[in-house]
Structures are given as C-alpha cells and as structure tokens.
Nucleic acid binder design. Structure first.
Lengths: 136, 136
DNA sequence: ACTTGAACCTCTAGTTACTAGAGCTTGTAT
DNA sequence: ATACAAGCTCTAGTAACTAGAGGTTCAAGT
C-alpha cells in the first residue's frame, strides 16, 4: 500500500500541513517522492504516524514522542525506559489535574460570592483586584 | 509612590520583560518616562498589574483579561458580563479536568499492563502502537 | 566631581505545536 | 486536451512569554 499525503491524512486524522511539519522537524522520516516530487508513504510510515497521533492524544510532547520512537527503534534499550517516560508523564498529568481543581474552587468561590450579592457591581472584578499575598 | 520597572516587578512577581510585553500588546497603558527614558509607574498601574497576574494565575487568557479590564473601566457595563466571563472560564476548566482524568486512566492502564508483564519488551510502546479506532 | 556597576533601554529571535495563505506545479478524470 | 483538485515550497502568524545583544541611565561610594 502506498499513500499520498492526502490519503495518509485521512487515514490518521492528521492534517496535511501537520504531516509535513512532522517531517520538517524529523519526527517522521523523509518520504519517498513521486516522479513529480509528491510525497509517497508506506504502511510503516502510516503506522508510525498513528503512533505519534495516539501519543499526542495522550498528551505526550513531541519531544517525549521522539524519545519513545527512539526507544522503539533501538533494539537494545532498557525495557523500562518507555515505562519511565510514561510514568513521568502520568505524574505531570496528575499535577495538572490538582492545579486545575484548585483553580476550579477559586473560580467557584468568586462566582458564588457574586451571586449572593444583589448590588450593581459584579464582585468578580472586585475579587480579582484583591491582592493575594498568599500565592508566591 | 512611583515605581521603576524593577520595583514593580518585585511588587507583582511579574518579570521585567513580561511587564514590557504587556505594555507592547496594550494590556498595560504606556508608562510615563523619566528624563532618561526609563519607565515610571504609579500605584494605579501597580494595582492593575496585580489584577492581571491574579487573573492569569486563575488561568484567564490575556484576551479574557482584556475584556475584564474593559468591563472595569467602562462605568456603564452590565453587572453580569464579568460574571459571564468567569462562568465561561469555569466551564472550560472543568472540561479540561475531565479530559485530563480520562488521560490519567489511559496512562494508568498502559503502565499497569506493562508492570504485569515480565517480558523484555515494555508494553507501553506496544500500547501506543495500537490504532485506536474509537477516538474520532 | 567622578567612577563603577546594577538596572534600564530597544530590537530581534526563540519557544511549542501547529495553522494559514500566496503562488506555483502535478495528478487524474473526462 | 483540459480542467481542477491536490500537491509543492516558503513565509508568517498563533499564545504568552523568555533570552540575548549591544548600548544607556541611575544611584551609590570615593
């Protein structure tokens, strides 16, 4: 099976300029070209792009994905390196969730305070104007 | 009270280049200048920068903050517009939390599967290679 | 008054992960 | 043979800053 860039795009739900971008930064190897200089992809490359998109959907950065791909290509890697990358990413995701939950609470408090008040001024603005001496 | 940019930076925990950046994009009004062309800030501007940093800490985008500032400056605004901006932001934060929780689950599953297996290959890579037909 | 050095100035470019557009060429179907 | 979709390259734009170069000003100490 040989794919044009448009076909690959449909297959992987990855936009055409994004595919070219991945090639530019060396995440996808340079595609073969047709007689007229158009990109032609193999199933292997399609598989790799699936891997990249799947990883992106899980929130891995392009840099992390580069590492994962390297681990895949390097036969003699430590079995647990990919595991470590994933583990590290999990920790980051959990931190992010914690941060956002705190944020949610602060927003809620702000909005609720405003609801209680029947006055002309929205307390949201007042609340944002209060200098929080706590954070850093 | 008059502040130099460095003093303002300390007061607000906002880096110097960031303050200049905010001025560039029109989020902070242009500062007065000393005889030697250095920026001089008033307490009002300090207050405004506090407002901006506080809002950023709550995850508002610079665009949203521009709206909030406009609401503050415009005397005859609808009392609930700022409320709406905050409410909308809250929804976004909650969506983000939901997404991240799903992500956390997928990562956990991936990592756990790998732990169970005692083989040479880390299943994290295998897992990322599986084409998920579900997502879009 | 003079000197030193920290803090300031402007301007350009880099970061992440793409996206959009201009202007041109190729592939394919009729 | 011709039309037009799809491809090509290259540049620039997005968000929210950050870093660096190369030069100027301020304030404190002598």
């Amino acid at each position: 099976m040989v794919y044009s860039i448009g076909q690959l795009s449909k297959e992987t739900h990855c936009k055409v300029p994004t595919i070219r971008y991945y090639e530019d930064i060396g995440l996808l190897e340079k595609a073969q070209r047709s007689a007229g200089n158009q990109r032609r992809y193999t199933s292997q490359q399609c598989q790799r792009l699936h891997f990249i998109r799947h990883s992106r959907a899980l929130g891995f950065s392009l840099d992390e994905i580069k590492q994962l791909i390297h681990l895949q290509d390097c036969k003699h890697h430590d079995a647990h390196q990919a595991h470590d990358v994933a583990q590290h990413h999990l920790v980051e995701v959990r931190n992010k969730i914690e941060q956002l939950k705190q944020l949610e609470q602060q927003l809620l408090t702000m909005i609720d305070n405003c609801d209680v008040d029947g006055s002309d001024d929205c307390l949201v603005l007042k609340s944002l104007n209060e200098v929080s001496e706590k954070g850093n």
